[in-house]
């Protein structure tokens, strides 16, 4: 199977028919939901929080953040960003509760320091590795993303990014970029060595900036 990020940049790949397909495909939905729950458990939030969702798409993960029950420390308020306008249009149609921004995480995030309690990203960070224009490289885009993510998290805040690295080299490139931005970082792999392996980059923004 070809990887979607090898075909087209995400704003073109997730055009209207693809966005709808992605959102209604029940197998994708189930996997996306279980990865969101896993990421949430790694964030260990105990009180209603402000959460950034990078690559929020049609709001599947966000809806889970909105529906965390009071007994489990929720519900959380979220701001989601995505580079695909048609994905966000599907989110609008589904009347998700979070705020949506059309933005490219590879350009850096426009939030002031210490905005978020936590951040989550499901199946998005690998897109930052394909630099489309001749003007920018994958390391530049990763640097802008992780540097600005580090600043926009409150001190001690956590981010969990599930992503699909193309290979070991790319996995290392992503983790190294996060560490260079100042994060404490760990890679967690569910189902390591199997075809369904899920990679989570677990990041903590340290106490000193």
């Amino acid at each position: 199977m070809s990887r979607p990020e090898d075909i087209l940049p995400p704003d073109l790949y997730y055009n209207e028919p693809t966005s709808k397909k992605y959102t209604t495909n029940s197998r994708i939905r189930t996997i996306q939901a279980s990865m969101t729950h896993r990421a949430l458990s790694l964030l260990s939030l105990t009180t209603p929080s402000l959460v950034l969702d990078i690559g929020a798409g049609s709001g599947l993960s966000g809806q889970i953040l909105s529906s965390v029950p009071t007994s489990a420390g929720g519900p959380h308020t979220w701001i989601g960003l995505d580079i695909s306008a048609s994905m966000l249009a599907v989110a609008l149609e589904r009347e998700v509760e979070g705020d949506l921004l059309l933005a490219d995480a590879g350009q850096g995030l426009g939030f002031r320091a210490g905005t978020f309690d936590a951040a989550i990203s499901i199946s998005a960070v690998q897109w930052l590795c394909n630099a489309e224009s001749s003007e920018e490289t994958a390391p530049q885009r990763l640097k802008r993303f992780f540097d600005s993510l580090y600043v926009s998290l409150k001190r001690g805040g956590r981010a969990v990014c599930q992503f699909y690295p193309r290979d070991e080299r790319q996995k290392k490139m992503v983790a190294d970029a996060a560490i260079r931005a100042g994060f404490g970082a760990g890679l967690l792999e569910d189902g390591a060595g199997t075809k369904g392996v899920k990679v989570y980059l677990v990041l903590t923004a340290g106490e000193t900036g």
């Binding site: 609008l92 949506l100 921004l101 059309l102 933005a103 490219d104 350009q107 850096g108 920018e136 802008r144």
Partner: peptide
């Protein structure tokens, strides 16, 4: 538009 702010920057402004 429709509550969604467009933060995409043309590449020369990034």
């Amino acid at each position: 538009k429709e509550g969604i702010a467009n933060f995409l920057l043309p590449s020369h402004l990034v």
